[in-house]
Design a protein around this nucleic acid. Sequence first.
DNA 1: TTAAGTGCAAATAGTTTGCGGGAAG
DNA 2: CTTCCCGCAAACTATTTGCACTTAA
Lengths: 129, 129
Amino acid sequence: MKRFSKRRQCILDNLESRKDHPTADMVYRSVRDQIPNISLGTVYRNLKDLADEGVIISFTQNGKEHFDGNNHPHMHLCCSVCGKIEDLPLNAEKYAPKSDPDFMIRNVIIQGVCSDCIARQTEDEVLEA
Amino acid sequence: MKRFSKRRQCILDNLESRKDHPTADMVYRSVRDQIPNISLGTVYRNLKDLADEGVIISFTQNGKEHFDGNNHPHMHLCCSVCGKIEDLPLNAEKYAPKSDPDFMIRNVIIQGVCSDCIARQTEDEVLEA
DNA sequence: TTAAGTGCAAATAGTTTGCGGGAAG
DNA sequence: CTTCCCGCAAACTATTTGCACTTAA
């Protein structure tokens, strides 16, 4: 049976209290304030368990796994240039796939380039010319 | 200037001709039929370049990068249990994020559990009880 | 008491990169 | 020629895991 360990609780509290979308390493560094001898492996193990149980959300961006303690249905807008991750409200009906209407949606990720980075890229091209 | 190398062309052709969403290793194994001495590093390099140029799409699922030669706007429905990846039509206008209407959408990923896996999980729970 | 959790360090998996040789323009 | 591309193997990064020891229940 799953236990209610101090570390697990601390990791979950940390994740739920922040509004960014940290990686395992970011959670590790933050949680050491409260539990200085916690190990990175433990952080990875607990985050993985919590994600498998559906308590938290996880998704990969730029080769790194990011975690989100907010498990209300919402979307993630991700800019592949600057790496910014932003929350968006989710209209679940809108996304319900016709091919599998019972598909249980856990997370929706919109990947692309944000308007700031589009502007920056256009500038760069002008400079090159 | 970017060259039009035989390997790059072969990798792109391979990707465009298939309707699955292969990993670098899957492309590598398939492309060796035509170019037996091609190296895995070359496949990685070219896939990365093509993705950076926006010629192909890439996204990470279950810790592995998947590639898609179909760059018409569409979504990916991904089951985190069985790993199935399915294409869905996308109406880009409809999904334009309100917080950044000019955001250039490259890919939309819907993560969750497909109905087959939901059914299988329910079965398992009955067996456990 | 005892099964689950943890720290530590080693192992793994996927991907990237430096370099000398090879090919395209 | 000269610049980019490739094969190869080593390097790197993020993540997982085995084991002896703790801790929650």
